[in-house]
């Protein structure tokens, strides 16, 4: 079949080497999480339907399965192919409830008015929280955030774009709930960065 007439279906575009790819993606994410603000290269190992991006889909395929309900933002929910692709390639259930989600996939961070609707875990089990994967177009071109905390020697800088509105205030609130809270993963083009709940934002000029 000539490539031009080939229509990708939801059954395609998953890992061709599930063992190697998921390990490589995980190690990039683990390093990103362990060193907040650092930008880690991500191999292109998936080809999902738009508007799901390669990097966000690779992260999700690495982490999610039948044990982890996934929440999709309205932008992603518009497209059945995205839902079907995720269900087929990960086995995860799509949940309409933010508070039940182990992972939340956000294609339009600008539409994310609140982080606290997601699960923050409990004081006894703070790990039972949602991890948000935000699709961003860049990790360096947005408004610069100055970060401090575990994993950071002195200070680090990160400039994802786009970002949720009033992010600074939202993050302060998330930080205040520690050890409860959500963790953020920024899926950029072929790269990934993270802000675990332990990361503090330094106010510019402070």
């Amino acid at each position: 079949m000539p490539a031009a007439t080939h229509t990708p279906t939801v059954y395609e575009g998953g890992f061709s080497d599930p063992v190697g790819s998921s390990q490589a993606v995980f190690r990039a994410l683990m390093d990103a999480m362990a060193r907040p603000g650092s930008v880690q290269d991500l191999p292109v190992v998936t080809a999902p339907p738009a508007p799901l991006t390669a990097s966000a889909s690779a992260l999700l395929a690495t982490l999610a399965d039948a044990d982890t309900p996934v929440w999709l933002d309205p932008t992603l929910m518009k497209t059945t192919e995205v839902k079907d692709w995720i269900v087929f390639h990960t086995g995860a259930e799509i949940t309409p409830h933010q508070s039940e989600a182990a992972f939340a996939l956000v294609a339009s961070p600008g539409g994310l008015a609140a982080l606290n609707g997601f699960s923050l875990g409990t004081q006894e089990f703070p790990d039972r929280s949602t991890t948000l994967i935000l699709q961003v177009s860049s990790l360096t071109d947005g408004a610069a955030l100055t970060l401090e905390g575990p994993g950071i020697k002195g200070q680090a800088s990160l400039a994802p774009d786009p970002m949720p509105p009033h992010f600074e205030a939202q993050w302060q609130a998330n930080r205040a709930a520690f050890p409860r809270g959500v963790d953020l993963v920024f899926a950029g083009p072929d790269c990934v960065a993270a802000m675990p709940r332990s990361t503090r934002l330094v106010r510019e000029g402070a």
Binding site: S22, Q23, L29, M33, L63, A64, A102, S129, D183, R197
Partner: peptide, 19 residues
Amino acid sequence: DEQTKRMIRRAILKGIAIP
């Protein structure tokens, strides 16, 4: 198996996030 690795990887990420 890969499912077990995923489960452990998720736990590792939470561990890193909550030192």
